[in-house]
Design a protein around this nucleic acid. Structure first.
Length: 86
DNA sequence: TAGTTGACCGGAA
DNA sequence: ATTCCGGCCAACT
């Protein structure tokens, strides 16, 4: 049974348009817990659903953060979508 | 039930 | 600008 928060987080991440990135903070806020940015990472890490563009979620500092498939892959995807200004 | 962990954040040194 | 520290929250052991 997945918690409501995790489910909401997935929905939010899934609604991220191509070519745009959303900080963990914002995802947490839209999920209902503005202070659960950390928990979002925990959920994402455990979430391997390809329908969820978790690579669009980055840190508020502008850093990519992490990725279950490798940060290199994440960076490549974002560059390909134009979500990164170099 | 309680303690530890981590794809985080913001402020201080 | 970079590094360190405490706080917050969900999942795991």
């Amino acid at each position: 049974m997945k918690s409501l928060f995790a489910e909401k987080v997935r929905e939010v991440v899934r609604s991220i348009p191509k070519g745009e990135t959303l900080p963990y903070m914002v995802v947490a806020e839209r999920a209902g817990n503005p202070r659960a940015a950390r928990a979002v990472g925990t959920i994402m890490k455990n979430n391997y659903d390809p329908t969820i563009p978790c690579h669009r979620v980055i840190r508020s500092d502008g850093a990519l953060g992490g990725y279950n498939r490798g940060v290199s892959q994440k960076r490549e995807i974002l560059l390909e979508e134009g979500a990164i200004c170099k």
